[in-house]
C-alpha cells in the first residue's frame, strides 16, 4: 500500500476547493475516532484524505429559529458543555453522554457519527426522531437533506464526493413535545449499542397527536419507526395500544442481523421491550 495523500486545508473554502477535484473515494477525516481504527487495522486503505479537524468554521452550536444548528465538527463533549444544546435538544445531549468515554467524547463529532452511517452510531437515531436536517456543502453550493434521506444504507450516505457535511439543524421543539432516549449496551460506558431508541411525541386531550421514533443497531443503518406513528396517532396511550405499537414496530420497521454481539431475534425482542417501556414512560409524562 502506498502512503495516502493527505490535505490539511486551513479554511472551509480551501477544503471545498480540495474536494472539488477530488477522487471519488477521498476520505474526510474529522475526530478520527472511527477512521483511525479503520486505517490501523488496514480495513480502510485510502489514497486521499482531507483532514477537517482544524476547520473552526465547522464548530459551534447556535440558535436557529428557536431550534439548533451545530457545526459538523461539534464534539460530544461540546454538546455536553452547551446549555443551548441541553435546552433545545436534551435527548441529543443524553446520547452524547453515552458515546464512548471522556477520551472519545472529546474527539467524536456529530458529523463523523452521521458520516459513518453505522447502524450503531448512537446520535443518528436521535437526529432522526427530532427531525434533523443535514447541510451538505460543496464549492458549487449547499443543499439540505433530512437525516432519513442522508442515511441510505449500511455505512452509505447521499453525500457526493465533492461535498462535506457543513452542519446539522434540529427544528424548534413543538409545543409540549415529550422525548425519550435509551441505549442498551453490554456495560454503561464505552460499549457498542445493542439497541438504541429515540422517541419524540406530543399528546393533547389524552391522545397522541404526533409520534416520531427511531432506532439504532436494528437495521443496516439508523431507521425511523413509522409503525409507531401509524398505530398511535389519534389514539389514547392505553396499555394494549402501547403493547401493539411496540410489537408492530419491532416486527415491521426493524431488520436486525445476527453478529458477534447479539442475535437478530434478541435485538428484535429488546427493541420491542425498550420501545414499550419508553412509550409507557413518555405517556406517563416522565
Amino acid at each position: 500500500m502506498s502512503a495516502p495523500r493527505v490535505t490539511v486545508p486551513r479554511s472551509l473554502d480551501e477544503a471545498l476547493a480540495a474536494l472539488a477535484g477530488a477522487a471519488p473515494e477521498t476520505l474526510l477525516l474529522a475526530g478520527g475516532t472511527d477512521l483511525m481504527v479503520e486505517f490501523e487495522s488496514g480495513r480502510t486503505a485510502p489514497r486521499d484524505v482531507v483532514s477537517l479537524w482544524r476547520l473552526d468554521e465547522l464548530r459551534g452550536v447556535r440558535d436557529e429559529g428557536g431550534g439548533l444548528r451545530m457545526g459538523a465538527l461539534t464534539t460530544c463533549a461540546d454538546l455536553l458543555g452547551s446549555d443551548l444544546a441541553r435546552a433545545r435538544a436534551d435527548v441529543l445531549v443524553d446520547a452524547a453522554a453515552e458515546v464512548g468515554a471522556v477520551q472519545i467524547q472529546n474527539r467524536a463529532t456529530v458529523g463523523g457519527n452521521l458520516g459513518t452511517a453505522s447502524p450503531a452510531a448512537d446520535l443518528n437515531p436521535v437526529l432522526l426522531a427530532l427531525g434533523a436536517t443535514v447541510r451538505l456543502r460543496s464549492a458549487s453550493g449547499s443543499r439540505d437533506l433530512p437525516v432519513e434521506e442522508f442515511l441510505t444504507g449500511y455505512r452509505a450516505t447521499a453525500r457526493r464526493p465533492d461535498e462535506l457535511i457543513e452542519s446539522i439543524a434540529i427544528p424548534a421543539r413543538p409545543a409540549g413535545e415529550r422525548r425519550r432516549f435509551r441505549k442498551v449496551g453490554t456495560r454503561r460506558a464505552q460499549s457498542i449499542s445493542k439497541v438504541v431508541v429515540a422517541l419524540a411525541a406530543t399528546l393533547a386531550d389524552g391522545r397522541f397527536t404526533a409520534v416520531r421514533a427511531a432506532a439504532g443497531s436494528v437495521a443496516p443503518t439508523a431507521v425511523l419507526l413509522p409503525s409507531l406513528a401509524a398505530e398511535l396517532v389519534g389514539q389514547p396511550p392505553d396499555e394494549a395500544r402501547l403493547d401493539a405499537a411496540a410489537r408492530r414496530a419491532a416486527r415491521d420497521d426493524a431488520a436486525p442481523i445476527d453478529d458477534v454481539r447479539s442475535t437478530a431475534a434478541y435485538r428484535r425482542l429488546v427493541l420491542q421491550r425498550v420501545l414499550r417501556t419508553e412509550l409507557g414512560a413518555l405517556a406517563a409524562g416522565a
Binding site: G31, G32, M36, S51, W53, A77, V102, Q103, N106, R107
Partner: peptide, 14 residues
C-alpha cells in the same frame, strides 16, 4: 483535552 493518542493523526496536532 484528554484524548487517546492512538486515534490522533500527526497532521491534526500541528
Amino acid at each position: 483535552e484528554l484524548v487517546n493518542s492512538c486515534l490522533v493523526a500527526a497532521c491534526q496536532v500541528e
